[in-house]
Simulated assay, not measured.
Amino acid sequence: MSWLSTRTYYEQINKQVQARAGQRASAPMLIDSLDFSGLARLSTREEWDHAAEVLCTSARQLEAGGATAILIGANSMHKVYDRVAAAVSVPVIHIAECVAAKMAERGVAKAALIGTRNVMLESFYRQKLIARDIELLPPEMAFVDTLDRIIYDELLIGKVTRQAERELKTILTNLQQDGAQAVVLGCTELEMIVAVDANVLPIFDCTKIHAQAAVDWILGEG
């Protein structure tokens, strides 16, 4: 939901459309760029109810504007996915279901999920992976605290530091030592500090996978 992840989605979807449909092709999209300042670090029921209302209103507006499928460009906001999906008649493509399908396709049996605190600790995201018989390492609170700080205090405001890159590399190395066969980037901004294609473990970049699902839909292959 940060403008940074919106930019990444826009770029990834268009690059994939161009690669598959031709150099002059681009993706027909409607984008509702929401103000993330009131939707960060939510914890109370009232805060999540407000987030659900904001996203449901946005989804209805997109459907009214002609959207034939909808993506929520934020992993954490999939906590209110069911309410958003119920608010519209068009499909809402679930990011964790896309990631889980890709991991199952690659034969991953044991993985680690990293992202914001609620993505790592709550069941709404994890259960989508477990439903595909993917065993998830239990979240380590030290990693949870570090990742939550990096995401909210740095990445969401566009701040990328060598220190954050080193901390992520240490976390990924530890996850490999703990037995993870792969790691899910359960935050759309984490690709800013993780070398997705050059790491100690296979990295499943949720944004790239979600964007691919959008392109499949756009090109009539989804």
Rank of each mutant, 00 (worst) to 15 (best):
E140V: 12
D148M: 12
I218F: 11
L156Y: 05
A142F: 06
L147C: 12
Q127E: 13
I171N: 02
L147I: 04
V184L: 05
A211D: 08
Q163V: 08
T170V: 10
G179S: 06
G158T: 12
D153M: 08
Q127I: 00
W217P: 01
M120H: 10
D153P: 05
L168M: 15
T207C: 15
T170H: 11
N174Q: 15
L137M: 07
Q177F: 06
L121C: 09
L172H: 07
V119I: 10
I218E: 10
E122Q: 14
N174F: 13
I134L: 00
V119E: 04
I151W: 00
G186L: 06
M141S: 05
D145E: 15
Y152H: 15
V119P: 03
V144S: 06
L185A: 12
I209K: 11
P139H: 05
R117Y: 07
R149P: 01
Q177E: 15
V196C: 02
D145L: 10
N174S: 14
I130T: 15
D178R: 15
D216C: 08
V184R: 01
A142D: 14
P202F: 03
V196R: 00
F124P: 09
I157G: 01
A214D: 10
E165Q: 14
F124N: 13
V144F: 04
V144N: 04
D145Q: 15
S123W: 06
Y125F: 14
A131M: 01
L185S: 11
I157E: 08
V119W: 02
D197S: 12
E122L: 10
V200S: 01
Q127K: 07
G179E: 07
N199D: 02
E122H: 10
L155E: 10
A180Q: 12
A142T: 15
D216M: 07
L156Q: 14
A213G: 08
T161H: 02
I218M: 12
C187Q: 09
L137K: 03
T207I: 14
F143C: 01
D205A: 14
M141W: 09
K169I: 01
P139V: 02
D133M: 00
V144G: 05
V160E: 13
I150W: 06
T188I: 09
L175F: 12
Y152F: 15
R126D: 00
A180Y: 09
T188Q: 05
G158H: 13
I193Y: 05
Y152V: 05
Q176E: 14
I130Y: 00
T170A: 13
Q176I: 00
R162N: 06
D178A: 14
K208N: 11
A180E: 10
D153A: 15
E165T: 08
V194F: 10
V144L: 02
I151D: 02
S123P: 06
E167G: 00
E122Y: 11
M120Y: 11
L137A: 07
E154Y: 08
P202M: 04
Q163F: 04
I150S: 05
E135P: 00
D197V: 04
T161Q: 06
V196S: 03
L219D: 03
A198N: 15
I203R: 01
R132E: 09
L136M: 02
H210I: 08
A213C: 09
C206M: 13
H210Y: 03
Y152I: 13
G186C: 09
L201H: 04
A131W: 03
N199G: 06
D197I: 04
E189L: 11
T170Q: 13
P139Y: 01
T207M: 14
A213S: 14
